[in-house]
Design a protein around this nucleic acid. Structure first.
Lengths: 343, 343
DNA sequence: CTGAAAGCGCTTACAG
DNA sequence: CTGAAAGCGCTTACAG
């Protein structure tokens, strides 16, 4: 039951520990025959490296900066809270986490925050990417300065970010359409979409996926023009109020942005809670309540704790040049009904 | 940026490393005033222990045995495969994993396998718990011998297992009913349930949750008597064939056990694929195919990789007496439609 | 191209 | 009740 260690490999290959280490880490300047001897010994005695010991010896520390939008977006608050609790836990794993708030929907502010990242201090930076002009270039600069950029929740495809942590938003839109379509069937009539901002890639993608499925599979349903409510509760409430007044026969709404409280308020004002089918995003407290009392029919969610942990794991793996498990890091589109809410 | 270590604490408190370690690990036999000095120093200089270094020094190794049912149950195959790949990865984290197969639905075989666990060698044992006579007592015995028992997928509530890794199966049944109910609405007619075995707690619970919601919220739907198909494809096919012949007007089926291939075969034979609404469990290859071609409407899933990793993390935490993140370990009821299949 | 020795941050006998 | 020293399994200067 004794562990096989580098010492055993060194003894078996009749070389020093330093040489074993060189081979193990693929470093330059080892004679081919020596490499051969060592790899042979490793195979023979069945050695696998202890990662934790290696990290300890390497004195490796990771520093990660999260740039998160400020404001009253409940989902972003959840992300921030998860990042804070991850910070407490990850210090034990030689990882320091710092959270900086930036204004939402604000390309220039994001660019400024990216440029302000102290490249000598941070391993990586995680941010919700507004797809605004020049953000791509700011990402280029951060890469050049040796910091690993990770986009979170909303991506900029074609940029040089190292990885995107978030759901497939086109698929999310399609899923919303499938649910809403089945829930209103066999009625025919109007369906509305409420978005946050068409500056955010995730919103654009969700809309695209939703309209795709609606057109293909529910041609009997009429799609009203998209409302853009900037993820703001007051704006959402007033826009939806107008919507419900103008279209009293509305069958369903896909709320693909935030600001669920404003939506609920408008529905209740018109006494339409539970009458109009609603599919929305993100399992916030408001969403839970609306699911429970029947105001909402389904919520699509992207698990905040999973996303935060995934970003951290990916930065560490990328920094170490080690691999990570795709299956573990893929963020799923979670569907919640009233009945699987507490699971 | 230098890390604060035990050395710093020792210097600050003017005690030895050994004493710092005693306080850190809450060991007996330290003077109260000394404890005070050390905790004070820890607070003052802001020390947090490096877990990896601690594990290295402790020479801690974990050995975990998975007892998984043999046979052609596709979901169990997925679990086994995940356990195997976890085995490869976790050796790097001082964790050895061994997999043993046992016959399915076989209480005595499970008991025998539990009793055969070498208590001096294993930290914990993970198993799918048939709720058969005397299994509870076998779990008691394993606890007494100092091995941590974890139930996976199907639980025995009230037993002394240390933890259950799996979904809330009553909630899963309720969710299935909500989906199926909405999918068939506003039609009225008959709905059937196909189960595996009423010896398995998870099947019993799913059925319970399903019937609850059906009776409360869809009184216009008639529930046919439950079919028990032992998770076997041939049996399922023949039972469902009879079902479809006797009830040509059937609206929907909740398949709460395994054996989806048999179900699909019967539906296709009767040319009813896509006509009868189907909600089933576990995202196997058969399930994916059936979702894609419209034979199934929704699949409830419990993520196999997550369940395997969770069981491992929980055993390590329990063995170390450290805490784990409830939120990370809760297994969710994932709902899949055709549209969020690849996410 | 290779090796001896010190060190990462903790824990563990052992001695007192 | 407390401390000095060795060790966990790896990596890193430094010397040759």
């Amino acid at each position: 039951m004794k562990r096989v260690t580098v010492h055993d490999v060194a003894a078996e290959a009749k070389v020093s520990l330093a040489t074993v280490d060189r081979v193990l880490n693929g470093r330059q300047g080892v004679k081919a025959t020596t490499i051969e001897k060592v790899t042979h010994a490793i195979e023979k005695i069945g050695f696998t490296r202890d990662t934790q010991a290696a990290n300890l010896a390497k004195r490796r520390v990771y520093r990660i900066c999260f740039l998160l939008p400020s404001g009253d977006n409940a989902f972003m608050q959840m992300l921030k809270q998860e990042a804070e609790s991850a910070a407490d836990i990850e210090v034990r794993n030689r990882t320091q986490i710092e959270i900086r708030e930036i204004p939402p929907f604000d390309g220039p502010a994001l660019i400024k925050a990216l440029d302000a990242i102290e490249a000598d201090q941070f391993t990586g930076v995680v941010f919700v990417a507004s797809d605004a002009p020049h953000v791509k270039q700011a990402i280029e600069r951060i890469v050049e300065r040796g910091v690993i950029p990770i986009t979170l929740v909303s991506d900029i495809p074609g940029s040089s970010r190292a990885h995107f942590v978030g759901i497939d938003n086109v698929a999310a839109g399609r899923t919303a359409a499938s649910l809403l379509g089945r829930f209103v069937r066999p009625q025919t009539g109007k369906v509305a979409v409420v978005a946050g901002s068409m500056l955010l890639r995730d919103h654009v993608d969700r809309r695209f996926g939703f309209e795709q499925v609606m057109r293909e599979e529910y041609p009997e349903l009429t799609l009203l023009p998209v409302l853009e409510a900037r993820d703001d509760n007051a704006t959402t409430e007033s826009l939806v109020n107008t919507l419900l007044t103008e279209h009293p026969d509305l069958l369903g709404i896909y709320n693909l942005g935030a600001a669920k409280r404003g939506l609920v308020a408008a529905l209740k004002q018109h006494q339409l809670a539970g009458k109009v089918r609603i599919v929305a995003h993100d399992l916030t407290d408001d969403a839970r309540e609306a699911l429970c009392d029947g105001t909402f029919d389904a919520i699509l969610n992207q698990d905040p704790p999973h996303q935060i942990r995934s970003a951290i794991r990916i930065i560490r793996a990328l920094a170490d040049g080690t691999s990570f498990l795709e299956s573990q890091e893929r963020i799923r589109i979670d569907i919640f009904l009233r009945d699987n809410l507490n699971t």
